[in-house]
Amino acid sequence: MRFGIVVFPGSNCERDCYHVVDAVLDSPVRYLWHADADLSGVDCVILPGGFSYGDYLRPGAIARFARIMRAVEEHAARGGLVLGICNGFQILLEAGLLPGAMLRNRSLKFQCQDVFVRVETADTAFTSMCRPGQILRLPIKHGDGNYHADPRDLAARAKVVFRYCDADGRVVPEANPNGSMDGIAGLANLAGNVVGLMPHPEVCAEPELGGTDGLVLLASALRYWEER
């Protein structure tokens, strides 16, 4: 499977994503420039974290109009894999590939910390190797992760993939780092090929960085692609 990582002006996790796919997963990977028109034949598109266009106006609001996003939308519609991490998730929401929107964190502060998330469904490309209820420890680092959606719209267009939880898997207010609705940390479209999440699996995929729970997302994608 060939991975492509989109570089918007202001992306800042693209090198970290590249490193994990290349050095840890040992899979082919290339960068995709925001102004390009096509995906150069990649199978899995990663929209990385960062502050595309400075997060000016609203996170993701300007990036969604980048030229490459039309190709990403078509790719998603064809069943191609798309993973949006943090700012990438925000872009997916602004682009309408996933329902809802992000508000500022309840604390009004940027939060960088490890959190626990509970896998709510294994029925997506990026959680196919998980079991429902599995708890992952992943880092978050964002200022706008307070997810909000109309519940009917959410139910009609997406499924919840990850919820913030405590170490024992309970979704409780104390374990919610940003005020996100129903503790939502990640979503998938109904087909399961498009996933967005606030935590950063790419900085949590090697033992020397203190954890490897993030690796399961990309490993799932590889297996999903092989078995498709």
Binding site: L103, R104, N105, R106, S107, L108, N146, H148, G179
Partner: peptide, 13 residues
């Protein structure tokens, strides 16, 4: 403006 009913953490603070 934020829609009525949408939590506004900045406003609350």
């Amino acid at each position: 403006r934020l829609k009525a009913g949408v939590l506004d953490p900045q406003g609350a603070a």
